[in-house]
């Protein structure tokens, strides 16, 4: 059963009013323009033991994604395709409001939106992941963990997920005469990718639309729309969330904002592609950056 959230973070009335009055002047508490995305960092290859991995940061929002690959049976309706499974976990270390437990409706929603954005455009060429047609195929497990929740976790999860898929290498397999499959983890080929996909989330507060809401903004949004955009500029998925409503004009502006910002996100995916970044260095540079900006001392 889905219940109106009542145990979220409490945002002081003063801060809320400040956000609202700044929006009236087309600006935001952190100084961004309405259609301005936060700084993006994508670090692939952070977990060498996985088949593919990446850490993505949007401002302070941090998500880490890992890909594990196994062998299993295909779904009966798609005997000649590999299997992709997307899972998102909101772990309690990411925010004081999160508690341990199985994925709740928010985590499930995000995982399903990411899954749909990847699936319908065939971002991964699952037809190339068949070992014995109808019997044995590769199973791609894409697991995404939120590490730091500072708003807009969906876009960060999608970015980490896509970056991890781009970093993924598929292990070779050996098949014996009894059709037993053995995975050889030392010999790999890149995961066949047809398209890169990113999502851009746009929040509506009052009658204003803002791109990439931070946590304070996320807490007071009336509604959000997440737009999946492929590297060829098509819309590959949509999801409206929150109790508010969107007019046609809102949607027109949201799609425009999404297309503009998708370029930046897609570029971030390319920047470090093919490299291996140490987890230590990404997290360290993050702390140093925060000290430089006098955010923590």
């Amino acid at each position: 059963m889905s219940i109106t959230p009542t145990s979220g973070r409490i945002i002081p009335r003063l801060r809320r009013d400040t956000i609202l009055s700044l929006l009236e002047k087309d600006t935001r508490l952190d100084g961004r323009k309405l259609n301005e995305y936060r700084e993006i960092v994508v670090a692939p290859g952070v977990i060498p033991k996985s088949e593919g991995s990446a850490l993505a940061r949007i401002g302070s929002t941090t998500a880490i994604a890992g890909v594990k690959i196994g062998v299993g049976t295909p779904f009966p309706d798609t005997p000649n395709e590999g299997v992709l499974t997307v899972n998102v976990e909101f772990v309690p270390l990411a925010s004081p409001t999160l508690e341990p437990g199985p994925p709740d409706e928010n985590a499930i929603e995000i995982a399903r939106v990411i899954d749909r954005c990847l699936r319908e455009i065939r971002a991964i060429d699952l037809s190339k992941l068949v070992i014995i047609p109808g019997e044995k195929v590769y199973i791609i497990w894409l697991d995404i963990y939120i590490l730091d929740h500072d708003g807009n976790v969906l876009d960060a999860s999608m970015l980490a997920g896509m970056a991890a898929l781009l970093d993924t290498r598929v292990p070779k397999v050996e098949i014996d005469e009894k059709k037993n499959v053995r995975i050889i983890r030392d010999e790999t080929t890149p995961l066949p990718i047809n398209h890169k996909v990113v999502t851009v989330s746009i929040a509506k507060i009052g009658n204003k639309l803002i791109v990439d809401p931070n946590l304070d903004e996320d807490d007071i949004v009336d509604a959000k729309i997440t737009i999946g955009i492929s590297d060829d500029g098509r819309i590959v998925g949509l999801q409206k969330a929150g109790p508010g409503v969107f007019t046609y004009d809102d949607l027109r502006l949201a799609i425009k904002y999404a297309k503009e910002n998708s370029v930046k996100l897609l570029r971030a995916l390319e920047e470090k592609k093919g490299t291996k970044i140490s987890l230590n260095s990404v997290l360290k540079s993050y702390v140093e950056e925060k000290i430089l900006k006098h955010q923590i001392i």
Partner: peptide, 19 residues
Amino acid sequence: SFKEITLLQMNGVLTEDEF
């Protein structure tokens, strides 16, 4: 009455015009 959208999801690929 208001032509306001309260639910919108999309599974698939469309150009903006098609949308």
